[in-house]
């Protein structure tokens, strides 16, 4: 309890992190209350096409090529962008941290085996692999999440493995080994906590990357066609960039804000977990 309080105190000392957290909370609330804010489906053709923002009451964000409300799209899009971003990152972390820890800690054959496996995934350009996976599984929210998760874990594995490799030869780990602590205990209590901060920094980046990957897939026509996402909106706006800047501008801003917020929060967490560093940098 006391520890939690300390953590929060340190987290809140980073103003950027607090702002980030507020934005995230706002986006999450938006996603939850989307049906109340905009009861109609974001796909519904509600007005004439290409209404610029602030021109017509009730359509503050303008309308798109077919006369759909951009505002509705933004609010409903928060749901799937967050869902895809978070879920696929969890998938990637589960795979990546596990494999990376094993490889880096045990070294030798285990390391070889895992790293060869990682290299398989890593050596194929991951964006292309994501497209192939989505194409095979048919584009849908699930296949997009899975594909992004599957292509995103190798950096985590390599990072964690690199940290393990480097930390393993450190004195404090060597000492624990000499003292005869179990491997699991050393991994979980000695090494893993020390790798957390780069992993956390990476996680926040990964959620962002996942959101960007999803938009890139939609850009190429491989998103879930039944779900309105920010990525889809930018993809659809691309051909009319000159005529309707607002169509890509607003979803772009949403992505930017969300990604920015995620990063700020990540940094706040980093500060809160690495008190020495945090004190130094303030």
């Amino acid at each position: 309890m006391q520890k939690n309080l300390e953590f929060w105190k340190r987290f809140c000392r980073n103003k950027g992190a607090v702002v980030g957290l507020l934005i995230i909370v706002a986006v999450i609330l938006m996603a939850i209350f989307a049906p109340l804010l905009y009861p109609d489906s974001p796909w519904k053709l509600v007005q004439r096409p290409f209404i610029p923002p602030m021109e017509l009451d009730g359509y503050w964000f303008g309308t798109d090529t077919l006369g759909r409300d951009i505002g509705a799209g933004l609010v409903h899009g928060a749901r799937v962008s967050l869902l895809v971003g978070l879920t696929s990152t969890v998938v990637a972390l589960l795979i990546g941290v596990t494999l990376g820890a094993f490889a880096g800690y045990y070294g030798g054959l285990v390391d070889d085996g895992v790293m060869r496996f990682t290299e398989l995934f890593q050596t194929v350009p991951n964006f292309a692999l994501a497209i192939v996976l989505v194409a095979i599984m048919q584009p849908s929210v699930e296949s997009v999440i899975l594909a992004i998760g599957i292509v995103s874990w190798p950096p985590v594995a390599r990072l964690v493995r690199g940290e393990f490799l480097s930390l393993r030869s450190r004195e404090f780990v060597q000492a624990s080994m000499v003292l005869g602590q179990s491997n699991a205990r050393i991994i979980l209590t000695q090494i893993l906590p020390n790798t957390l901060s780069p992993v956390i920094v990476m996680t926040s980046l990964m959620v962002a990357t996942a959101i960007l990957l999803e938009s890139a897939l939609s850009f190429l026509g491989l998103g879930d066609p039944d779900v309105m996402s920010w990525g889809y909106m930018i993809g659809a706006a691309r051909t009319v960039l000159r005529q309707a800047w607002w169509m890509s501008f607003f979803p772009g801003v949403m992505i930017l804000l969300t990604v920015l917020a995620l990063n700020l929060v990540g940094e706040g967490l980093n500060d809160a977990m690495n008190p020495r560093l945090a004190r130094k940098s303030r």
Binding site: T65, L66, S140
Partner: peptide
Amino acid sequence: QRWAEAVQQNLEEVGINVDMEATDVG
């Protein structure tokens, strides 16, 4: 793609339950 979305809306408006699928050339 836009055209399919518009038709989907037309059909849903009269009560047809349309599930849009995505695909590529292959």
